[in-house]
Structure formats: C-alpha cells, structure tokens
Amino acid sequence: MSIWEYANPKRFMQVSGALLPWLVGLTLLTLIVGLVWGFFFTGDDYRQGSTVKIIYLHVPAALMAINAWMMMLAASLIWLVRRHHVSALAARAAAPIGLTMTLIALATGAIWGQPMWGTWWAWDPRLTSFLILFLFYLGYIALWEAIETPDTAADLTSVLCIVGSVFAVLSRYAVNFWNQGLHQGASLSLDKEENVSDVFFFPLLVCIAGFVLLFVTLVFLRTRTEIRQRRLDALEARERLA
C-alpha cells in the first residue's frame, strides 16, 4: 500500500470524510487554547503594550500564507509528474485559503503598524513581498477560473505556479535590495538571541499549530467540494448531451 492510493478520488473522499470531524475538533481546540492563552493569560510587552498580542494572529497567518504557496507548488509538481487529479484539485483548493491568510497577515500587520510605526502602510520589504505574494495568488486563482477544461486549467496553473515560485523568490530579494525596512527580524528562529521571550513563545507555538490544522482542515473540505463539483460537472455534461 503506497501513499499514492490516497490520490484516488474515491479513496481520498473516504479517508478525508472519516478524518474531517476529528480535524475540525482538534483545530478548534488548538486555536481556542492558543488564542485564549495568548490574549488573556500573557502580560503586555514593556514597550509595545497590549498591541503585541496581535502576533498570535499575524505570525501564524503570515507563515501559512507562504506555506500554502509551498503546498500548491508541491501539489502542482505531483500533478505534472504523476497526473493525480486530487493533487491538482488540492492545489486549487489551497489557493483561496492562502490568499485569505495573506490578507489576514497584511491586515493585522497594518492594525499593529498604525500605533507602532505611526502608519498603516509602509513600503517595507516584508510588507511589499506579501503584497506581491497577494498578486501571485490573485493571478493563480484568476487563471483557474478563466479556463473551462479542467485538465487544461490544472496543467496551466501548475506551470504558472512553478514559474511564479521562482519569480516570487526573486521578487523577495529584489525588494530587499530596493528598500531596507522597518519590520523587525523574524519573531521565531532557532537562534535564541533574536527570539521573542518564552512568555509569548509557547502560546504562539500553539497558535501556529492551530493555524496549520485550520489550513489542513480547510484544504480537505475544499478539495472534497472540488471533487464533488467535478462529478457534478461530469453528470451535467452527460445530461446536456443525452
């Protein structure tokens, strides 16, 4: 039994259907624990006051915004190499979630930036990169929507995703070169010197886990929807022809 068995639409529907209730429960639990812990049971930062608490949304959302694209890239490659339809549909399903995560990261960043930097928006490299990532998501989704034949759409969006990934990385470096920014360094890294203090660190980890679970749950849900949509389309097409 190999992992590719799950690439069969029917098998995927069975397994994901059985897993979904558990996933939903686990996601809710982790998110509630993480957010409540973060919002109500940690102290304020000595410089940033209570505004610091927005990191419990901002950091996980930003992480998932990038990871969603990575997942789409992996799924696109799997589709191009092995032609598993579930893979292509999962990439399609992940795109709007990634787009939303990017928006959350941008919005929470703006809300936090207003009191901290005194501006809603600055052309800081990180912010700009996320804006560009947002545009990439838009283009990817628009291409999916524009093409009627599902397999053609899957192929073309996969090619776009791969080329787009290269250009996204390139843009990140270009933007860094273009403007040195205000944004602080990474909130999390293995280098202990830079890390946020432990008080914030553990609830943040729980929140990140919650967001990962949320992403997986949503991708499962949306992929199931896409598979059902495909079946419905096939039935309708047959209906029209009959």
Binding site: I132, L135, F136, L138, G139, A142, L143, A146, I147, T152, L156, V159, L160, V163, G164, F167, L170, S171, Y173, A174, V175, F177, W178
Partner: peptide, 26 residues
C-alpha cells in the same frame, strides 16, 4: 498561458505584471 482564452488580455496583465517586479526594480 492565455492564448486559448477569448478575453485573455486582462488576465494576461494580471499574470504578467507581478512577474515583472524584479526586472522593474533592478
């Protein structure tokens, strides 16, 4: 990418402009 589409022009801009960012910056 957009050659088969009837109104591909607008989509083409949406796809291509983000890819132009690094070239424009440098």
């Amino acid at each position: 990418l957009t050659v088969g589409l009837k109104r591909g022009g607008l989509l083409l801009s949406l796809l291509v402009l983000p890819l132009y960012v690094p070239t424009l910056i440098f």
